[in-house]
Design a protein around this nucleic acid. Structure first.
Length: 881
DNA sequence: AGCGTCACG
DNA sequence: ACGTACGTGACGCTC
């Protein structure tokens, strides 16, 4: 079947330009829009498999609409030269791909696309329009879908008539009426003053079209609205005309002539080289002779070590060497080890697990710290081997952690990913070798051994290139002095595990069962029927249809039943309270009783979490299987879960040490705000101090409400404040929230200055950094989309704070582990929960640990405000409070 | 697999 | 007028 893809060239180029930082080639040629365009194009070609493709561009200065409305597009700022110089390059790109492009003097890309979709529609062709312009939604029909780019150009959102109905409650053609009423500043379509999307949608749902609205002005509710409509009848009609995309432009290209039969690799490769798109080169299908040699089809030389012949390979074990430990499964606390890949210059080996188990020379080499090893996720290897009483030492470069530091946004990279970036040898993603989901299967020996050997070889080839990239961004120290040592500390903690009192959990579970049964009965009675309380859909029907409670907030799929909404509904009906309680207890049962019990290791009676060191965008850790960073504490009923976390040795204690207000202290340091620094130097309660300053009262006059509000403002500041967010949190109006913020910034002017500067900095560099130079890229910081841009701006404010706090506790963990060893202490570090460390401690070390832990944590990094740590201990995690 | 919800910092 | 608080992971339901 034919599938025509029509691309709005100008729109995509624009969005790509503003979404990506201003990249340039070594010759100074700007390429960010070209890169964004290319990424989008590759994605479309791969995912949509089009048979026909055409890219339309605007052409000529005088568009036909000018005569109708002189100001049309008048408000549009001139295209910056950095962008306009990229259009010829985009044309080259399309030529390299043998993709048809088209422009028509005096017409816009919209009109060309509008006309061609009509042609295609008449031929019953499946057609997809790629654009960033919502106006184009008017072209949607049974055969025509519109894909809107999101997050710059990296993601797309497909609209068929169904999605438009769901999102706007409109038919595609009514999009024109929508624009006619609300206007569009970017296109300088005036619309009706005072009418935004909300009002426009309301009017259209009622009257259907601009014309019909204008005929019924008298019936429209709202005096001011009526007046605006009456005074702007012409403007509304003109706006609608302006928003209408032409379907009969004199386009001489026929849809048949846009046939696309794939591209030849050479011109594409040449173009990418010219643009210096190194990472894209590997994505060129069937590319050049180089890759063919290295690629799948090419022979790959490696040897499998057999048990009778290990002696032959002894001299192959060199330093440095790349090591890859292959295991069957994600969770390395349980996954069987399949074998090892080893690689160095001219060496590529696979050592099956059975052979490795018997090969003592190999095991000694593995445990020798003097034998330098390059790895991908050394923690995984270390822990997995530890479960088999094997040691790996001498890890000097961890490419998993390195690529995380280079770009934290790339989610869970595999060796295959770094191979495509940095190596010559080709590596298949694990999923392609093993299959996924239920179809997962360890492949036959021949396939497995080659895959693992390739991985090791890819690592070997990548390391020098990754090192160069690290040096370029000045990230070597962060890797070698922080993340790599930390990974070994984490490995010890994970392997150590935390003892769980399974019996206690079971008891709690039984109590919960009883309570939940009672609550279920109560809820059914109050509802007058039984239903699945855990189904937001069914619950919504009961609350909002049957009981007729007001809908305060909606989600994509229906009315929201989230806790904040239910709390507001509580006065209306007694069922609400029961539901909230049911939810709370249900969560405890499913996640913390049942979920946690499943994770108890049968051999140790402990839970062994996995700390992911390369997941978060800010530099924090995360914890999975089980997640031990979200064990309940805020509500007493949930907090009891912590009673089940106990020391693993008779007579020991659990000791918890947490940083007090670390993020606000970090903010004081990096903003240099004199007032905030003063507050911390005087050791004041920071929320009380904020309340004093913001409300201008003495310490004794601060009420609990004032303190609570000040606390919320402080949280907001750390998150990158907005009046809306604060108003939601405090349940106050936006105006009031805005006033709080204004008063805050008046007193803490250094904080205000920091917020402004960091956003400016982010716009200039395209990234922000923490105190230890951890980096986060913010591709949306220059986006023309208000939402994306605002989000990126808040991220720019928050990440240096959250990320620096993460840096500090990571430093503290490394020092802590060192101190425990140096001082010959038996105490063990077990967990990290973002701003706190949990230990198990023998009684005889309680005293020293209460000194040592805060000392190490408070002095992990010198700031211009003191860091403060509180310590508590008890017979369980619950009692360490 | 995606969504809504909710647990934590 | 725009529409949000920052960062995570696990669960049950729905398709």
């Amino acid at each position: 079947m034919s599938h025509l893809v029509l691309i709005d060239g100008n729109s995509i180029a624009n969005r790509a330009f503003y979404a990506l930082p201003l990249l340039s080639t070594s010759a100074g040629l700007h390429t960010n829009a070209v890169l964004g365009f290319t990424t989008m194009l590759l994605k479309v070609l791969e995912e949509m498999n089009p048979t026909h493709v055409l890219v339309a561009f605007d052409a000529g200065k005088v568009v036909f609409r000018h005569s109708e409305f002189a100001e049309y597009k008048g408000g549009r700022s001139k295209t910056p030269s950095e962008l306009s110089e990229q259009f010829p390059l985009i044309r080259d790109l399309l030529d390299a791909f043998s993709i048809r492009r088209f422009e028509l003097e005096g017409y816009e890309a919209d009109d060309i696309i509008g006309t061609l979709t009509l042609h295609a529609d008449q031929n019953n062709w499946k057609t997809t329009v790629i654009t960033g312009d919502k106006d184009m939604l008017q072209l949607v029909s049974d055969h025509v879908s519109v894909a809107l780019t999101r997050k710059g150009v990296s993601e797309i959102e497909l609209y068929t008539p169904k999605e438009i109905e769901e999102k706007y409650g409109l038919k595609p053609l009514q999009i024109i009426d929508l624009k006619g009423l609300m206007g569009d500043t970017s296109d300088n379509i005036p619309g009706v003053p005072g009418v935004g999307e909300k009002t426009a949608l309301k009017l259209l749902h009622e009257y259907g079209s601009v014309e019909s609205v204008l005929e019924n002005i008298d019936k429209v509710s709202g005096k001011k609205l009526q007046e605006n409509l009456r005074e702007n009848v012409d403007k509304a009609k003109l706006s609608k005309a302006l928003a209408t995309i032409m379907r009969d432009a004199p386009v001489e290209v026929t849809v048949e002539e846009t046939a696309y039969e794939g591209y030849t690799p050479e011109p594409v490769t040449d173009f990418f080289k010219k643009m210096e798109f190194k990472s894209l080169l590997s994505k060129v299908k069937g590319a050049g002779t180089d890759d063919e040699k290295k690629g799948k089809g090419a022979p790959f030389d490696f040897a499998v070590v057999e048990s009778e012949h290990t002696a032959r390979f002894a001299d192959k074990l060199t330093s440095p060497m790349a090591v890859s430990v292959e295991m069957d499964g994600e969770n390395y606390h349980h996954a069987p080890i399949l074998g090892f890949g080893l690689a160095a210059d001219g060496v590529s080996l696979y050592v099956p697990w059975d052979v490795a188990k018997e090969w003592t020379a190999f095991q000694q080499w593995l445990a020798d710290d003097q034998q330098e090893k390059w790895v991908f996720d050394g923690k995984r290897d270390t822990v997995s081997l530890a479960w088999h009483e094997l040691t790996m030492a001498g890890i000097r470069f961890d490419s998993y952690l390195a690529t995380y530091l280079l770009n934290a946004a790339e989610s869970s990279p595999q060796v295959a990913d770094i191979a495509s970036h940095y190596a010559d040898v080709q590596v298949l993603p694990d999923e392609e070798v093993y299959g996924k989901g239920a179809k997962r299967l360890v492949p036959e020996m021949g396939v497995l051994s080659e895959h693992v050997a390739r991985k090791a070889t890819a690592l070997w080839q990548s390391v020098p290139r990754i090192r160069d990239a690290m040096a370029e961004s000045k990230l070597e120290e962060l890797l070698s002095d922080l993340e790599e040592p930390l990974s070994l500390v984490l490995a010890t903690m994970e392997k150590q595990g935390v003892k769980v009192n399974e019996h206690r959990l079971q008891q709690m579970g039984e109590e919960l069962d009883t309570q939940l049964e009672k609550l279920t009965e109560t809820i059914y009675e109050l509802a007058g029927t039984s239903f699945n309380i855990n189904s937001p859909k069914q619950l919504g029907e009961i609350l909002f249809d049957k009981l007729d409670l007001p809908v305060l907030k909606k989600t994509k799929t229906g009315p929201s039943t989230s806790a904040d909404v239910l709390e507001k509904l509580a006065p209306y009906h007694p069922i609400i309270e029961a539901i909230l309680h049911f939810r709370q207890l249900g969560k405890l049962r499913s996640t913390y009783i049942e979920g946690l019990t499943k994770e108890i290791h049968p051999g140790t009676g402990k839970v062994h979490t996995i700390f992911n060191q390369a997941t978060t965008a800010t530099g924090r850790l995360s914890s999975t299987d089980p997640n031990l960073q979200n064990i309940p504490i805020r509500l007493e009923e949930g907090r009891k879960i912590r009673e089940a976390f106990i020391p693993s040795e008779e007579g020991w204690y659990i000791l918890a040490a947490d940083y007090s207000q670390i993020e606000l202290r970090v903010l004081a340091h990096i903003s240099g705000d004199a007032n905030l620094i003063d507050a911390f130097q005087k050791g004041m309660d920071i929320h009380t101090r904020t309340a004093m300053d913001v409300f201008d009262v003495a310490e004794t006059e601060v009420t609990s409400l004032m303190r609570r509000q000040a606390k919320a403002v402080n949280f907001g500041i750390v998150y990158g404040i907005s009046d809306y967010g604060l108003s939601q949190n405090l349940n106050i109006t936006r105006k009031e929230a805005g006033e709080f913020i204004e008063r805050y910034f008046a007193v803490f002017s250094g904080v205000k200055q920091y917020m402004e500067d960091i956003v400016k900095q982010a716009k200039q560099d395209g990234f922000v950094t923490t105190l230890l130079n951890r980096r986060r890229y913010l591709p949306d910081i220059k986006s023309s989309n208000f939402n994306l841009r605002s989000f990126a701006e808040r991220t720019a404010m928050n990440t240096p704070i959250q990320g620096t706090a993460a840096d500090i506790i990571k430093l503290a963990m490394i020092r802590m582990q060192g101190s425990l060893r140096e001082q010959g202490l038996e105490s063990r570090m077990l967990l990290q929960v973002h701003d706190e460390l949990i230990f198990e401690v023998p009684e005889k070390e309680l005293e020293i640990m209460q000194q040592l832990v805060p000392d190490v944590m408070e002095n992990a990094l010198k700031l211009n405000v003191p860091l403060k740590v509180d310590v508590n201990y008890g017979r369980s995690w619950y009692e360490a409070k």
